[in-house]
Design a binder for these strands. Structure first.
Length: 552
RNA sequence: GCCCCCGUAGCUCAGCGGAUAGAGCAGCUGCCUUCUAAGCAGUUGGCCGCAGGUUCGAAUCCUGCCGGGGGCGCCA
């Protein structure tokens, strides 16, 4: 019996009680009843607070209401016991047989266990990182690489149609500074004060000159453009290979330039004009974002006739919507939180619902500590720790997992020494170890010629088996919730809890026969449970983009 | 000046309207004569920043204050 089925049973019990005239619900029977797993095992396998929630509306004391539901629930097949407890909780214990069936459902569902359709029919665009192609990605970007990708995977698992998108900021003055810096290096001159000073600039210059020695003979302006474009090409390829190594794959790499070249900026402005929130003032073109709560209006076209960065943003948003995305998620760092108000207002100016069509989760920046000292990240000074360097030191799995197990809006301090140590300090090893252990049992079973065979679910009645089954049953709800709130860390925390529940089961419940003992039904039933557990851990790790090793 | 995020165990952090507030690490004590001890069991450790309010019930929601971090004033 899954929590979902139980939730429906409670709802049906409510409906039946209303029909029988035992209770009255002026607000009607709720569509969905919340079923939780109580912390305290004495409170049964599942609990619900419906009686307390509906007591006022029903005009009945919570405990009394609970009693009226309890006697109906006791008749439900698969429900073993129902207690009314505390202020009016319904504590429900599920029959071992009904609960054991869950192992079969999970094994049969295999890789699709955990998928739901709670977001089916929704097209979601998740944009993250979106760095300038003027340098390597560094640890400041890496959190979004891990969280953004995991968020996309989780939302996808809830049935949404998802695109991961990287907006390439390949236009504007930073690109010129980038070109100027490379050219200066190539010519053996000093990089301007406000240019890029990292060692990679010299490497780019060397690579470009080696590939095109004649570049240095070009007139200064052509040479600058050539260095800028060659540098752009190489640096973008470098970013893409960094992300590839980090197992973060984008569906769309969207160049800001193409917005301008294809006339989409003008088109975006047309859309806004039609909505009536654009006006001229002081020789500039403005968007009246204050109509929708922004603290001031925003310039689209400056007095000198050039577009602002915000004009690109607007056109890009309109473009995304025209490509059919219902929800546009922008994962931004706290250093960009000032954009939230104007982006939301911009969406409203475009005629959209800012509470539905655009979401802007703000991620707190990652603080990095090494040898007890905070490291400052400065692309220009060239002292940053690149994504590649961190991946090399910590490994993709440990890094991705560590970054994903905290909510994005929570400040995070990464101790470089700690994450590079690859010891059990990192919970990823705990979870992966559970998977390796599970795989090992299944491997040994295969060697012994023991097959799953026919499951006898009622044999899985040990307390630790029961707890494990209950934990496995939570998985789809956890994924759906993580997707709804765009919080993949919930999956990581769930995996840690479930790994712990498994280790405790393993400690007490022998799965395979000992010595010459013949394989019995209990061994096969536990093997089903082991395969179900392995499936859940593997599926959960996959949602985080972390490997599920069969051996460690 | 205005705005955002965060103050929970020694440390890093979960929990965000429910029943005795949790995990990992750090500390102490046990457990490998058969499936991976990267594990398990036990134990130590908390005015959930402070003060009010909302209700059956607040670490969780609201207001104010204190402390820490970050941003904003036709810049990309």
């Amino acid at each position: 019996m899954t929590p979902e089925q139980l939730s429906n049973a409670v709802r049906d019990a409510l409906g039946a009680a209303v029909e029988a005239g035992e209770i009255t619900l002026p607000g009607g029977v709720p569509d969905h009843v919340l079923i939780e797993r109580p912390r305290n095992p004495e409170h049964g396998d599942y609990a619900t607070n419906v009686a307390m929630r509906l007591a006022k509306q029903a005009g009945t004391a919570p405990r009394e209401l609970a009693e009226r539901l309890a006697h109906r629930l006791r008749e439900v097949s698969g429900v073993e016991r129902v207690d009314v407890a505390g202020p009016g909780f319904l504590n429900i214990t599920v029959a071992a047989g009904a609960q054991g069936e869950l192992a079969r459902s999970i094994v049969v569902a295999a890789e699709s266990y955990g998928r739901t359709n709670t977001l089916a029919g929704t097209r979601v665009n998740v944009e993250f990182i979106s760095a300038n192609p003027t340098g390597p990605l560094h640890l400041g970007h890496v959190r979004w690489a891990a969280v953004g990708d995991a968020m996309a995977r989780v939302v996808e698992a809830a049935g949404a149609d998802v695109a991961r998108e990287f907006y390439i900021n390949d236009r504007g003055s930073q690109m010129d500074k980038f070109g100027t810096s490379i050219m200066a290096r190539a010519q053996g001159k000093d990089v301007p004060e406000d240019g890029y000073h990292g060692a990679y600039i010299a490497e780019l210059a060397r690579a470009i000159v080696a590939d095109r020695p004649e570049i240095l003979d070009l007139p200064e302006d052509e040479q600058l453009a050539a260095f800028r474009e060659e540098g752009y090409r190489l640096q973008l390829a470098e970013q893409q290979s960094q992300l590839d190594e980090f197992r973060t794959h984008f569906d769309v790499w969207f160049s800001e330039r193409t917005l301008h070249e294809s006339g989409q900026v003008e088109h975006g402005l047309d859309v806004l004009r039609k909505q009536g929130h654009v006006f001229d003032a002081d020789g500039a073109l403005w968007m009246r974002t204050t109509d929708f709560g922004d603290d001031k209006d925003r310039v689209l076209i400056k007095q000198d006739g050039t577009y602002t960065y915000f004009a690109s943003d607007t056109a890009y948003y309109v473009n995304k919507r025209e490509r059919g995305f219902d929800v546009c998620v922008y994962l931004l760092g706290a250093d960009h939180h000032g954009y939230v108000g104007r982006l939301k207002a911009m969406a409203a100016c475009a005629g959209d619902d800012p509470d539905r069509n655009i979401e802007i989760p703000i991620g707190q920046l990652v603080k990095i500590v090494r040898d007890g000292q905070e490291m400052r990240l400065s692309k220009r000074a060239g002292t940053m720790l690149t994504l590649g360097e961190v991946v090399e030191a910590a490994g993709v799995d440990a890094l991705r997992y560590t970054l994903c197990r905290y909510p994005a809006d929570s400040p995070l301090t990464l101790d470089v020494n700690q994450i590079t140590r690859q010891t059990s300090d990192n919970p990823v090893f705990y979870v992966q170890y559970a998977h390796a252990r599970l795989s090992s049992i299944l491997r040994n079973a295969a060697e012994l010629g023991i097959e799953l065979g026919e499951l006898q679910p009622e044999l899985l009645n040990h307390e630790r088996e029961s707890l494990l089954l209950a934990a496995l049953g939570e998985f789809p709800r956890i994924v759906a919730t993580a997707a709804e709130y765009r919080q993949p860390h919930r999956v990581a925390r769930y995996l840690e809890d479930t790994a712990s529940t498994f280790h405790r089961f393993y400690d007490v419940c022998r799965v395979l026969p000992m010595g010459d003992e013949p394989a019995a039904d209990i061994h096969r039933a536990r093997l089903w449970l082991v395969e179900a557990t392995r499936t859940v851990i593997a599926n959960g790790l996959r949602l985080l983009g972390v490997a599920a090793p069969e051996r460690m």
